[in-house]
Design a protein around this nucleic acid. Structure first.
Length: 264
DNA sequence: AAGCCCTGCAACCGCGTCTGG
DNA sequence: CCCAGACGCGGTTGCAGGGCT
């Protein structure tokens, strides 16, 4: 028998299903995940939804000026390697960056290329501006090489702009400040990365696992609460809200109950 | 007030790469 | 070494919302 694969926008119920499943079992195998979780989606779609929207550390809201400038610089260095650029911008996804590039930054660069003292078009392969910038940013470590290699593989060691690691850390602070409150705002700071180990459960090998420390379940609950409210599910959740805390391990149990109620 | 157009974003698609058998 | 399956990435599309006429 053939089960029809659903497409198009994700419903809150589907989101919740996906979240609670990953929370419990991780996502070792995207292909089998939909079947196991009861989602009528293809694995690819689930993966995309998780990575671009549901991941707890995904940062939403407008890009700050600093972020945009960063993207421009990184794009001059990496070209359309969106995932590489995203890796330098904590909380931002490649898809998001790609969208921002095509909707805002490209146009801005075209405009500014008209003025002589602005950077040339993004297609320019001249990296001196990027390197200058990186030199400034990484001046703490003048030994960090800024190689001119453009098409390296994704190994950190081969990263042509290894110095950006510093930028990453500095940039974290910037982003925290400019984070916009209008959309899904995860009530964690970066120290809340423990959520990963929680979400991934026993799957230490999971591609998104971020270290093996104990997670703070209160933080997780906070996040789930927030997510439920963002998804417009908090009313239903009220019914069993009072039960929270009596469950020993599962903050997910309330989530599961929630969506079980919803899909009845 | 209604219709049209534009913009931005979420999601899909196809291809390349990686990995395990 | 080869092949098949799974994953990840980048390009593209479609839709919804907002602004303009």
């Amino acid at each position: 028998m053939i089960t029809k694969v659903k497409r198009g926008p994700w419903s809150p119920e589907e989101d919740l299903k996906l979240i609670s499943f990953i929370q419990k079992f991780g996502h070792e195998n995207w292909r089998s995940l939909p079947k196991q979780s009861g989602l009528l989606r293809c694995g690819k779609s689930c993966r995309l939804r998780w990575i671009n929207y549901l991941r707890p550390d995904v940062k939403r809201g407008n890009f700050s000026v600093e972020e945009e400038e960063m993207i421009i610089k990184l794009h001059q260095s990496y070209g359309n390697k969106w995932s590489k650029i995203a890796s330098k911008l904590p909380g931002r996804t490649d898809n998001e960056i790609k969208n921002v590039w095509h909707t805002h930054l490209k146009k801005r660069l075209v405009k500014s290329s008209a003025s002589p003292d602005e950077p040339a078009s993004p297609c320019s392969s001249d990296k001196t501006q990027v390197e200058d910038c990186l030199k400034i940013k990484t001046s703490h470590d003048s030994t960090t090489p800024v190689s001119s290699g453009g098409s390296n593989n994704s190994n950190q060691e081969d990263d042509p702009n290894l110095g950006l690691v510093f930028e990453y850390n500095e940039f974290n602070d910037i982003i925290q400040e400019v984070d916009k409150p209008d959309l899904l705002e995860i009530p964690f700071d970066d120290s809340g990365l423990d959520i990963w180990s929680f979400l991934d459960g026993p799957n230490e090998n999971s591609s998104v696992s971020r270290g093996g420390e104990e997670c703070d379940e209160d933080e997780v609950k906070k996040w789930l609460k927030h997510l439920e409210s963002e998804l417009g599910l908090e009313e239903d959740d009220n019914q069993h809200q009072h039960k929270e805390g009596t469950e020993d391990k599962d903050s997910s149990s309330s989530l599961l109950k929630t969506y079980e109620l919803m899909i009845h």
